[in-house]
Design a protein around this nucleic acid. Structure first.
Ligand SMILES: [Zn+2]
Ligand SMILES: [Zn+2]
Ligand SMILES: [Zn+2]
Ligand SMILES: [Zn+2]
Lengths: 130, 130
DNA sequence: TAACATCTGTTATAATATAACATTTTAACC
DNA sequence: GGTTAAAATGTTATATTATAACAGATGTTA
């Protein structure tokens, strides 16, 4: 079981904002939102983001350079992540599908590489936008 | 069948460099490499990259902000891409696996989203680095 | 030769991310 | 408590990645 992580002040502030957000947030938009709390520099945001990712509390959506809170427990501390992304409205949804995760986790490339981690991003139009 | 695409001068220059490279290339490293050919500005690189991606000649490795030539014909003009990425040496290899591609192309999310495209990135250590 | 789309060149700037260093807080140990 | 080491913080500066905006050239197509 994942042990209860105790977050530092800045980590908690950043996580709170990401968790409250309906969609993915960019680092600088997080920064602008926390300046009232005394966080003034990108470094402070990026350091918190890095730790939160390590802990599996958030994920980075690589194709958008944006961050979402983890809503799943299948993703094993960010070792196996999958998202569906609407190309129209920016919506991102974490896919939590045990079969998919198992299928990909056991996938092995011919060329002798043993995978430790994967990230999968699906793109399309969400219900609302289609 | 993909029709023979005719490339513009800048597109051809950029594609040549990417195809000759053993690993993924970053936009600004491409830029520095083509300044002798009279290309001086990032815009010129990014415009060529955009078109080459549209044509399916190259892919962007999102987790690295870098570009590789397409070595596959399964990826259907960038609608279904998968890569294995070595976390140690930067090596990137395009995965061309019909079963994987079919499995993911037919994957449908519960929440009513119909996918048009996916990108999958596996991470690990390559043969040499492990 | 129009008309239109595409590509080019250029300058400027926006957006994303890290380096480096000094200091403070926290947690663990004696 | 006092000592230490690790983690987190604050700060300034800078590096890296990407786009905006505009003018001109080239190239189809009718
Ligand atoms: Zn998750
Ligand atoms: Zn949508
Ligand atoms: Zn390809
Ligand atoms: Zn390697």
């Amino acid at each position: 079981m994942a042990q209860a992580q105790t977050l530092s002040r800045n980590q908690q502030i950043v996580l709170d904002i990401i968790e409250k957000s309906k969609g993915p947030l960019k680092a600088y938009s997080i920064l602008f939102n926390v300046q009232k709390k005394g966080i003034n520099a990108p470094q402070q945001i990026y350091r918190a983001l890095d730790k939160l990712i390590e802990m599996g509390k958030i994920h980075k959506i690589e194709s958008k350079n944006a961050f979402v809170a983890c809503r799943s427990s299948d993703c094993e501390i960010s070792k196996a992540t999958a998202f569906s992304i609407c190309e129209s409205c920016e919506m991102v949804d974490e896919i939590s599908d045990a079969k998919l995760s198992k299928y990909l986790s056991s996938f092995n490339h011919r060329k002798g590489m043993k995978f430790k981690r994967f990230n999968l991003e699906f793109f399309g139009l969400c219900k609302k936008c289609k």
